[in-house]
Amino acid sequence: MKFDTAYSLSLDDKLSIYDVRELNFDETDAYDSDTDRFLCPNDTCRAAFDAGNVLSTFNAKNVNYRRTPHFKNTPGTRHIEGCRYASSHKTATGESEDEREEHFPSEFVLTRRTYPRKTPQAGTEGQVPQAPAKPPSTRTSASVGANDTTPDKTSVFAHPVECYVSNLDDKDKLKAMPLKIGGHTATYWTFFKKIEYLQDNQGLIYWGRIKAIKDYTNSFRIDFEKKVWLDKKPYSVNVYLSKKLIENYRKRTAFLEQIKAAASSARPLYCFFYGVTPALRQVPSKKNPEQTFGVFSADIENLDHLIIREVPAAEAG
């Protein structure tokens, strides 16, 4: 059985698998999921066993992934009777180990979540506590809620994007699932807007297939395949990632690894971003600087809100 929330012993809090990925790639945070222990998110179930009753992770450390990241039971993981995370629950609910993300957050929070550490015991700084004398905490996090279900809110952009991408062939579900960003509430289907229709509404999550990624060594430009039509004329669309933006990014190493691989990849890749809306600009021609041409362009302001990835359903459609 796969699920996207677990209790982190080292942080004494419940994390989504997307939180774990954020922490693994964050160069400002000394965290490694391989040294953490993940336990059942059900408070009652977790308290019934010792800290050795762990879960495992899937795609927690891969910069690029093709299957939905998740936590899962190990062959030795135990649960109390009736726990919704027991493997036997899979058959009863019809869950399957497919590539769909079933846990839709209802709100994408624009302020990044912080992950306070437990106060380390004397002589154990930097180590995961081993065999604690008392059962793991049963406290709940405000970001998770008072029960063991998947959190309704997320500050990790990859989570709503994965929900959309992995369910792209189920329009009815996407049209039924609500999503709130800032003061705007709509459905997942409405919030995700193809790049060629960016003029329809502002403040949405825009996405489209990448035509090319221009590598300027210290900065990048992502060109989209589809064009925007305005006054019966087609205009190219791109987003620019500045040197300063990349250098100050807390996940700089992982980001550079991903975008450089994407720039040289022959696979069809798509870019999703939030926070800026490309607008028509006049830029000078390389051949004749005195002449200009129009292009829809935007400078990305937050790399936490940009993702490059595959979208198999878009290719199939």
Rank of each mutant, 00 (worst) to 15 (best):
A314Q: 06
P312K: 02
A51G: 00
E301H: 11
T124N: 13
D299G: 03
Q202A: 14
S264Y: 15
P136M: 06
T74N: 03
K90C: 09
R113L: 12
T253P: 04
L39G: 11
T277L: 09
M177H: 10
Y206I: 03
D172A: 11
E257Y: 05
Y270K: 02
Q130D: 04
Y197I: 00
L241T: 00
I300V: 04
E99H: 12
E225Y: 12
F272M: 09
A176I: 08
T35W: 14
I308C: 09
K153V: 00
K72V: 04
S297T: 14
K287S: 10
E162G: 06
E257W: 08
Y7G: 03
A92E: 11
T187V: 01
T277R: 02
A47F: 06
E27Q: 14
Y206M: 03
C163K: 06
P129M: 02
T93M: 01
D36W: 00
Y274W: 00
D32R: 11
T124M: 13
D200R: 08
E99T: 15
C271W: 09
L280A: 12
P312D: 05
A316V: 14
P135E: 14
K251S: 09
V109Q: 01
L55I: 01
Y115T: 04
V165A: 02
L230I: 06
D26G: 01
L230C: 11
D169Y: 04
L280E: 09
R112V: 02
Y115N: 14
V54K: 11
S285K: 02
K153N: 13
L110I: 13
N288L: 02
E81S: 04
L39S: 10
D223R: 12
T68D: 11
N218Q: 10
L110G: 14
V295T: 06
D148H: 10
N53Y: 07
I17H: 12
K14P: 03
T149D: 15
G82K: 02
P116T: 09
P289H: 08
A6H: 03
K175T: 05
A158N: 11
P312C: 02
P151K: 12
L110S: 04
A266Q: 09
F49E: 03
G145F: 08
D200L: 08
E22I: 12
V128W: 08
E22W: 06
P129I: 02
R100N: 03
S56P: 15
M1Y: 14
L204F: 05
A146D: 15
K214P: 00
S236D: 15
R267I: 04
S155R: 10
P105Q: 11
S141D: 13
K72F: 14
C163F: 10
C45D: 02
K227W: 01
A92Y: 01
I205N: 03
G52C: 10
S166C: 05
T91N: 05
N302K: 09
Q282L: 11
L39A: 15
Q291Y: 08
T154C: 05
T187H: 14
L303C: 01
N64G: 13
D50F: 02
N201L: 00
T74D: 03
S56C: 13
C163T: 06
N73G: 10
V128S: 15
S265M: 10
T217A: 07
Y235V: 09
W207D: 06
D26P: 12
A254L: 00
E81Y: 09
T91L: 06
K171G: 02
H305V: 01
T140G: 14
V144F: 01
T93H: 00
S285L: 10
P135I: 06
T253L: 05
F273P: 05
Y164Q: 05
A47V: 13
F3A: 01
E301Y: 00
S16F: 00
